[in-house]
Amino acid sequence: MSEVLTPVNPVEPFLRAERMPHIWCPGCGIGTTVNSFARALIESKVDLDRVAIVSGIGCTGRVAGYLKLDSFHTTHGRAIPFATGLKLANPALQVVVYSGDGDLFAIGGNHLIHAARRNIDLKVICVNNLIYAMTGGQTAPTTPGAAITTTAPYGVYEPAFNLPALAEAAGASYVARWTTFHVRQMARSMQEVFAKKGFCFIEVLSPCPTLYQRRNKMGDGLDAMKFYKEHSRTRNGAPTGEVGLTRDGEIVVGKFVDRDRPEFRDLMRDRFTHQLGDRYVDDAEMAEHPHCGGEDGA
């Protein structure tokens, strides 16, 4: 953890200082993920003017608002289709979707699997706190069995999604999972996906001390770190079918999938070129949207 506590916080240049303090609770893991993300931005040397962050709704949905990048706080569940439009209109952008498990896998689940199927070049970071936190601790599609939530006061009995397995099955090119204990590994994965073309998915298990830990008598944020440390096992390349999470069991972390599938725009270009030859106009090669008008204005 010492990296996080270096005298100059590496995150600072990436934050909208005027928006501090943030809304996240003490012990919440989202800030830690942002820290790793900032580190990845530095290490990957991406042009920050060309990075756009798209979030949905929820605690993690607020990440977009704190990062000093072009950022979009969209509607609940729809960060991915918004990002899809953004990326297609401006292929030069690095588009990062940064949102929570409920946003991306419940209300937005359909969009996630279709974006993965298309293998569109989006970097999806899913902060999984196992719960609906912003709304007060309701069951999420990720909440493990027997955990107590406000809408499952006697314990959750419906099965949870295994996010890496779902992302891989739907077609993601890159799938990794870390916890907020694994700040360096997480940052490395985040850095890697900037160089990876296609649909990339990183799950970060992150504590919600206020609504998950406390209600399930699992202690505070620090206890969560201990839990992650003791229960996680790194298994790079592990079959994603084997990495499902339980309330108290092992947490398999690592990079599970890193494969090459043709990306959406390449598929589109290939198909149109095949069918239309020279008649195909690839707008990625055109000057940026001359049809829109703009500075030379009204």
């Binding site: 289709p81 918004f82 899809t84 439009g85 279709h114």
Partner: peptide, 17 residues
């Protein structure tokens, strides 16, 4: 739902949509 917000993403990416 997806169509109606994909166009909004495209607009902020510089297109008319």
């Amino acid at each position: 739902l997806a169509s109606s917000i994909a166009i909004l993403g495209a607009v902020w990416g510089g297109a008319k949509a």
